[in-house]
Simulated scan of single mutants.
Amino acid sequence: MKKLLLLTFATLIFISCGNKTENKTMAMNTEESTETLVKENIYQFKVTDLYGEEFDFSSLKGKKILIVNTASECGLTPQYKDLEAIYEKYKDKNFVIVGFPANNFGSQEPGSDKEIAQFCQKNYGVTFPMMAKSSVKGKDMNEVYQFLTQKSKNGLQDSEVEWNFQKYLINEKGELIKVLSPRVLPTDKEIVGWINS
């Protein structure tokens, strides 16, 4: 009888310890998966604009943001006209466009920041924020585009900038929600519908 009681007691202790270990493992796994799911947002970034001034993305909290990489000598450059048109139409409705001039595709943005600013103003009357020329692809990719193109940072998807005028849509919480091809026009119903939603 004593042996049976000791055996039962030992079994209970073993089961109890086993459950604690299992619970601890489950808790650790839950913590790990929570950490992996934490995604960044656009508000952490400060960059320099075309005029050498600091541009803080946290100043855009509560707005829908369309980010686009631009070039002055591209077949898609006339999209500046549509970008400016939708910016003018919706800028008072919590919407902003942020342009990132880049020379990554066919060397189609060869100018300096000053030359790009003059080109945008003279040819398209651009008034939406334009950042300093930087890289949106490769080893020297700027940190905003690292966020936009890496799922580990944006929590949505990995993507590659295909060409000039690729578009990234950011919601009012600073989260990436959509990546659109360079050929999707700024006035496309998908973009306008999103702005109005």
Results as ranks from 00 to 15, higher is better:
91 K>A: 04
111 G>K: 00
74 C>Q: 06
93 K>D: 15
82 D>V: 01
77 T>M: 03
84 E>G: 09
100 F>A: 09
92 D>K: 11
81 K>V: 02
77 T>L: 08
87 Y>I: 01
92 D>H: 11
100 F>I: 01
73 E>C: 07
81 K>S: 12
110 P>Q: 05
98 V>M: 06
91 K>M: 13
112 S>A: 11
75 G>P: 11
103 N>S: 04
91 K>E: 15
91 K>Y: 11
103 N>P: 03
90 Y>H: 15
114 K>P: 08
72 S>L: 10
92 D>A: 07
89 K>R: 13
94 N>Q: 14
77 T>C: 01
72 S>A: 14
74 C>V: 13
81 K>Q: 11
98 V>A: 11
110 P>W: 00
82 D>C: 07
99 G>E: 04
76 L>G: 08
99 G>C: 00
89 K>E: 15
97 I>H: 04
88 E>I: 12
74 C>Y: 08
96 V>P: 12
98 V>H: 05
106 G>P: 06
94 N>T: 03
104 N>K: 00
109 E>D: 10
103 N>C: 04
76 L>I: 13
111 G>W: 03
103 N>M: 02
111 G>R: 04
85 A>W: 00
111 G>N: 07
78 P>S: 14
75 G>E: 10
115 E>S: 11
104 N>Y: 03
75 G>L: 08
111 G>I: 02
104 N>R: 01
89 K>T: 15
78 P>A: 15
83 L>T: 10
91 K>V: 14
98 V>N: 05
80 Y>W: 03
77 T>I: 08
76 L>V: 10
73 E>H: 09
86 I>H: 13
112 S>P: 11
108 Q>M: 06
88 E>T: 14
97 I>N: 13
111 G>D: 06
105 F>T: 09
91 K>T: 12
110 P>D: 01
104 N>C: 02
102 A>T: 01
114 K>F: 07
108 Q>C: 09
72 S>P: 13
115 E>Q: 15
102 A>D: 01
90 Y>P: 09
91 K>D: 14
85 A>C: 06
88 E>L: 14
111 G>M: 05
85 A>V: 05
88 E>S: 15
77 T>S: 03
90 Y>D: 12
96 V>E: 15
78 P>Q: 13
103 N>I: 00
110 P>N: 10
93 K>F: 08
105 F>L: 01
105 F>H: 00
107 S>M: 00
101 P>Q: 02
114 K>A: 13
95 F>Q: 10
76 L>H: 11
107 S>N: 12
98 V>D: 06
75 G>A: 11
75 G>W: 15
97 I>T: 04
96 V>Q: 13
96 V>Y: 11
90 Y>N: 11
99 G>P: 00
114 K>I: 05
85 A>I: 08
89 K>P: 06
106 G>W: 08
77 T>G: 06
114 K>H: 14
100 F>P: 03
94 N>K: 15
107 S>G: 04
